[in-house]
Design a protein around this nucleic acid. Structure first.
Length: 323
DNA sequence: AATGCGGGGTC
DNA sequence: GACCCAGCATT
């Protein structure tokens, strides 16, 4: 039986993770949101830090969004933090059913199913990228639709036993054995059932994606107590950063701040669908500014600030941190 | 169905 | 470089 083979394998092969066997719905929710498009190894330290600072839904509710983002800073997809914060403020406790969970901000079909099955024992299949790949190979499907995958996964879900454990077992198989590249088919507990084993890398077919270039300028205003930071809109929403804009606007921006900036270098930064290319300018500034360490910053802004700081140090300017 | 949204590991 | 990760919201 396929189900028994997978579960037996899982018991012996599962990686020890901080949220294994967790029953607290809040902690399960946090782990699942952190794991959205994020590798397990990358999520673990943030999971620990987050719980240290916000151990309960109540603690999260009583915090400001900015405090939450300060802990989230660095892991990416910052709307997840905002959604989580909104969830904490929406109700005293989390709803217990898949259908209700799916209505919460930041919870889609996968996360709602994961929480419903792991925290509340609901028999609903959680289909993430791992499960998608496992099922595509198991049934030799090149382009399965989300609907078809959900139906397949639901049909496979055992009628007895812990549905949360089952969902995790399927994902664990995808993460460690049925990997995107070089799957370990000889070690797979489902080998006897798999129709895609002859050419596993054909399933599912990869989707093409474009990566566009974006050229911008960044202006670092170096004040007495820190730098000028503004809340970011759109990209990096909720975090802070130095002003960035198309390079043609540099003159106008500099005039508006009453400074004459120097070019201090360039910064490249890659996002999933964008290649950012920033020319960085810096100037000493009459304003006070704020200490960047006190604000949640995207990695891009950290790079820009390092570039400016290196230039200014070379020019003999004492960084405000040491003032 | 397609696109935007981070950051990082891997080959 | 390209790919992709325990996805979601928006259009």
């Amino acid at each position: 039986m396929l189900q028994e083979a997978l579960l037996a394998w899982y018991e012996g092969a599962k990686r020890p993770l901080p949220w294994r066997g967790e029953k607290d719905p809040y902690r399960i929710l946090l782990s699942e949101v952190l794991l959205q498009q994020t590798r397990v190894e990358q999520a673990v330290p943030y999971y620990r830090r987050f719980l240290e600072r916000f151990p309960t839904l109540k603690a999260l509710r009583e915090a400001s969004l900015e405090e939450v983002l300060r802990v989230w800073a660095g892991v990416g997809y910052y709307r997840r933090a905002e959604h989580l914060h909104r969830v904490s403020q929406a109700a005293e406790t989390l709803p217990r059913s898949y259908e209700e969970l799916k209505e919460l901000p930041g919870l889609g079909p996968y996360t709602a199913a994961a929480v419903a099955s792991m925290a509340f024992g609901e028999r609903v299949a959680a289909v993430d990228g791992n499960v998608r790949r496992v099922l595509a190979r198991l049934f030799a499907l090149e382009s399965p639709t989300p609907k078809a995958l959900q139906a397949l996964a639901q049909a496979l879900l055992p009628e007895e036993g812990d549905p949360g454990v089952w969902n995790q077992a399927l994902m664990e198989l995808g993460a460690t054995v049925c990997r995107p590249k070089r799957p370990l088919c000889p070690a797979c507990p489902l080998g006897a059932f798999c129709q895609g084993q002859k050419a596993p890398e054909r399933y599912p077919k990869a989707r093409a994606r474009a990566k566009r270039e974006e050229r911008l300028a960044a202006l670092v205003l170096w004040g007495r107590k820190g730098v000028y930071l503004e809340p970011q809109k759109g990209r990096f929403q909720g975090l802070y950063g130095v002003p960035t804009f198309p390079e043609e606007e540099l003159g106008a921006r500099a005039r508006a701040f009453g400074v004459e900036p120097s070019y201090v270098g360039e910064v490249r930064h890659e996002l999933t669908h964008r290649r950012l290319f920033l020319r960085v300018y810096a100037a000493l500034w009459e304003g006070e500014g704020v200490d960047p360490k006190a604000k949640p910053l995207p990695k891009l802004t950290e790079k820009v600030l390092r570039q400016a700081e290196a230039f200014l140090a070379h020019a003999g300017v004492v960084p405000f941190q040491d003032a």
